[in-house]
Amino acid sequence: MLSKNQARLFFLGGTVVFFLIFLALSVNTVSSGIPKKTHSENITEAVVGGKVLFDENNCMGCHTIFGEGAYYAPELTKVIDRRGEAFVKGVLSSKVPWALHGRKMVAYDFSEKEVNDLIAFFKWVNEVDLNGFPPEPDLKK
């Protein structure tokens, strides 16, 4: 039967081996994978400005982006494709809570620069290669 020493060896050995593999893959992902898939050369000052606003206002506290966040409001990764720029600008600069279907969004009343930064951010997000997410609805008539 397995002894306690062998069990300890299994734990320590396994941990070290898998941690090192994980580290190697992470280095590859961070140094070449993500920059390529996200077109990191396209991250302009406006895109960063948009990300800062997205962060400061905790948009992820209602929405998802890349499928991450809360499940109270729509997924925003492809919002520019789905709605178009003008529609999104309308939502962001609205002075009253946006509530097309009853559920309210916070009325941010963003300035024109802020709206443009957020749009730049969404346009950059829109082009990130997400390995096919979100999938095309396959039962759509």
Binding site: L25, N28, T29, G33, I34, K37, T38, F66, G67, E68, V128, D129, L130, N131, G132, F133
Partner: peptide
């Protein structure tokens, strides 16, 4: 890491 803009090998 499936759909956040990371390489496909993570799938």
């Amino acid at each position: 890491y499936y759909s956040i803009g990371a390489p496909k090998y993570w799938l």
